[in-house]
């Protein structure tokens, strides 16, 4: 009896392992095979389309270039330091300047830039959209007022925003000592404009569909407006808010890459565009590395949000995938 159940148990375990590990692996191998097969038959103006091995080679190249660049930077500062010391030794009153290093940003630098930008835009959008969504969900009048605006702005492509944002930022953000670069602001604000809507809409739906009985409990307790929002409306809406946030972040990431390409703003998008313009024999491989990186980072961002949702949300039964 016991050995019988154990056997069944192991058999099921085995099947489960096949499903969750072997199937994705088979699909991945098939994908690689299909890729090498078709790449080998595709001749372009930049030469052969690189297969998996060539792309992997480019990936290691890019990392090596990054290391090299960092070493150059260190060397640059060391030289400068030595020069300054000599100057000071000759003449203690000499003015020494510390000049910044102006090397070309590497692939990894561009990744960091893009991540910072997407987070800034996303956070700004969240800070605006969640409170506004709560208000919209609570009050039918706010909903009526806001709904047409949302419906019109929601489908606007980010690339339509970009020229506007660029021009407005140039006009408004005028300082001698800029804390942020204009390109960073432009990209981040464009991301914000696209991240607003899913969070706003989902928060509003989450709040407005909260259990009426719970609201009645609040009324019987004579909870104030703020307490009702904080203790009932917001927690009720948490699962929906997270659905919105995840949508927003993934849209924001896609939008950012496109915006960087179009506006030549630093980031992964610019990297892709530069390689495209560059047109060397390595370019196709490097672009492919960028494509995979963009996809992988997008995936990680979504997983990150999911983990956050698991930690914050009370609704552990919600289907999280």
């Amino acid at each position: 009896m016991t050995t019988e159940t154990m056997k069944i148990f192991q058999w099921q375990d085995y099947q489960e392992a096949v499903r969750s590990f072997v199937l994705p692996l088979v699909a991945f191998v098939l994908f690689l095979g299909l890729w090498s097969f078709s790449a080998a038959r595709l001749e372009t103006s930049l030469g052969q389309v690189p297969g998996p091995v060539a792309v992997w080679g480019q990936a290691t190249n890019l990392i090596a270039e990054h290391r090299e660049e960092r070493q150059k930077e260190v060397a640059f500062f060391e030289r400068q330091e030595v020069r300054n010391q000599e100057k000071l030794a000759e003449d203690p009153d000499a003015k020494v300047r510390i000049r910044p290093y102006t090397g070309k940003p590497t692939f990894l630098d561009q990744i960091v830039t893009s991540l910072l930008t997407v987070f800034s835009g996303f956070l700004l959008a969240t800070v605006i959209a969640v409170p506004l969504g709560v208000l919209t969900g609570l009050s039918a009048n706010v909903y009526r007022a806001i709904n047409p605006i949302v419906q019109i702005f929601k489908p606007v492509s980010p690339l339509a925003w970009l020229p506007l944002v660029t021009i407005v930022v140039s006009a408004v953000y005028v300082t001698d000592d800029p804390l942020f670069s204009k390109s960073y602001l432009t990209s981040a604000i464009t991301v914000t404009l696209c991240c607003l809507w899913p969070t706003l809409i989902n928060t509003a739906v989450g709040v407005s569909s909260m259990d009426r009985d719970l609201v009645n409990v609040g009324k019987v307790l004579r909870l104030g407006w703020f307490t009702t929002v904080w203790k009932i409306a917001l927690p009720s809406a948490i699962p929906m808010i997270f659905t919105g946030l995840r949508l927003s972040l993934s849209i924001g990431w896609m939008v950012l890459i496109a915006a960087e390409m179009l506006a030549q703003n630093p980031g992964l998008g610019k990297f892709v565009w530069d390689e495209f313009q560059n047109g060397s024999s390595n370019s196709l491989g490097r672009i492919m590395v960028a494509v995979f990186t963009i996809g992988f980072i997008g995936f990680l961002l979504d997983r990150g949000m999911l983990m956050l949702q698991r930690r914050v949300s009370w609704d552990k039964d919600a289907i999280l995938r």
């Binding site: 259990d211 009985d213 009645n216 409990v217 203790k231 009932i232 927690p235 948490i238 009370w314 609704d315």
Partner: peptide, 9 residues
């Protein structure tokens, strides 16, 4: 209330 109406969180 009929359906307990506890805050699930």
């Amino acid at each position: 209330f009929q359906h307990h109406s506890l805050m699930p969180w």
